[in-house]
Amino acid sequence: MPVAPPRPKDLPLTALRAFEAAARLGGFAAAAQELGVTPGAITAHIKQLEQRLGAPLFARTPRGVRLTALGQQTLPAFTEAFDTLGAAVNDLRAAAAPRTVHIATLPAIAQLWLSPRLPALRAAAPDITISITALEQPPNLKRSPHDLSLFFDEDPAGRLAPDVIFPVCAPALAARLSGPQDIARFPCLSDATWSDDWALWAATRHADPPTIPQGPSFSLYALAVEETVNGAGLLIGHEALVAAHLADGRLIAPFPQRLKLKRGLRLWSDRPLRPGTAPHFVADWLARAAVPPLPMRNIQP
């Protein structure tokens, strides 16, 4: 009678994924953010994996964790393996729904730049379905289901527009401003994503930087823009995002001083976009549909 010995248990895939992410990103919190779980879940997965292996993969220190020699030795192979698995999953998803394009973008870009262009994009390609996910940070396109990323980024490849910032306000408030020093008399709105906007712009006036009174802070830039339209105060406008508001007069740029940042609005993919595919069409269409920047004066380097 043949003997069938028990099959050794495989190492859990979720634990291996947690290890690879934590090792590659340098910490449990960063891995949790990428994988969409809690840091406690990452800790539990890695502890389970270390118990199964009978050896530590991370050394715990008061300053955080660092890879052991075993962890360092095995990380490259697991990173390559999960990249390959991610590519295979994305190829499978694309083959199953070839006319669906998934775009990951910043919430402000989704609401103020991308959304107004979607009707024309749907008209140009009615057979393509556009799916948009608003994220605070660009995803790892090798692992995520997204075809395209649209974020502000310093890489010039795929840049659609520069990121130029300057104060904006409602027309009624603009009529009460005679110069930048008048800013001190009104609330200065800000948002959590670009909390240093006012300081960056004020630094362009080296001789007499205006006083910037602190006003309400918003977690959503689009909400800060709407409150500025409503007359709540001044806001640092990002030209690519407020161009439509400036064009139709809902917002006014009361001062000539503008600051061009190193980053720009960038569209990219970590996977080749083959001509004739839906992602290639959408990327090409959005690049051509990007509105040229408005004329700028006194742009600082």
Results as ranks from 00 to 15, higher is better:
Gly233Met: 14
Leu235Ile: 13
Gly237Arg: 12
Gly237Leu: 14
Gly237Thr: 13
His238Cys: 08
Glu239Asn: 13
Glu239Tyr: 11
Glu239Ile: 10
Glu239Thr: 10
Leu241Asn: 13
Val242Ile: 15
Val242Cys: 10
Val242Lys: 09
Val242Met: 09
Ala243Met: 12
Ala243Arg: 15
Ala244Asn: 14
His245Gly: 07
His245Ala: 14
His245Met: 10
His245Arg: 15
Leu246Ile: 06
Leu246Tyr: 08
Ala247Ser: 14
Gly249Trp: 09
Gly249Tyr: 11
Gly249Val: 10
Arg250Ser: 11
Arg250Tyr: 08
Leu251Arg: 07
Leu251Met: 06
Ile252Lys: 14
Ile252Asn: 06
Ile252Trp: 04
Ile252Gln: 14
Ile252Met: 08
Ala253Met: 14
Ala253Pro: 03
Pro254Ile: 04
Pro254Gly: 03
Pro254Cys: 03
Phe255His: 02
Pro256Ile: 00
Gln257Arg: 09
Gln257Trp: 10
Arg258Val: 00
Arg258Asn: 05
Arg258His: 06
Leu259Met: 11
Leu259Ile: 00
Leu259Asp: 03
Lys260Gln: 15
Lys260Tyr: 02
Leu261Arg: 15
Leu261Trp: 04
Leu261Ser: 05
Leu261Glu: 00
Lys262Asn: 15
Lys262Asp: 15
Lys262Leu: 13
Arg263Trp: 00
Gly264Lys: 02
Gly264Ile: 01
Gly264Gln: 02
Leu265Lys: 02
Leu265Ile: 05
Leu265Met: 04
Leu267Phe: 00
Trp268Ile: 01
Ser269Gly: 03
Ser269Tyr: 11
Arg271Tyr: 09
Arg271Ala: 12
Pro272Tyr: 07
Pro272Ile: 03
Pro272Thr: 06
Leu273Met: 07
Leu273Phe: 07
Leu273Thr: 06
Leu273Arg: 04
Leu273Gly: 04
Arg274Thr: 15
Pro275Cys: 11
Gly276His: 08
Gly276Lys: 11
Gly276Arg: 10
Thr277Phe: 06
Thr277His: 05
Thr277Asn: 06
Ala278Lys: 02
Ala278Asn: 05
His280Leu: 07
Ala283His: 06
Asp284Thr: 14
Asp284Leu: 02
Trp285Pro: 04
Leu286Ser: 01
Leu286Glu: 01
Leu286Val: 00
Arg288Phe: 00
Arg288Ser: 02
Arg288Pro: 01
Ala289Leu: 05
Ala289Arg: 03
Ala290Lys: 01
Val291Leu: 12
Pro292Asp: 00
Pro292Tyr: 03
Pro292Ser: 00
Pro292Trp: 01
Leu294Ser: 07
Asn298Ser: 08
Asn298Cys: 08
Ile299Met: 07
Ile299Val: 08
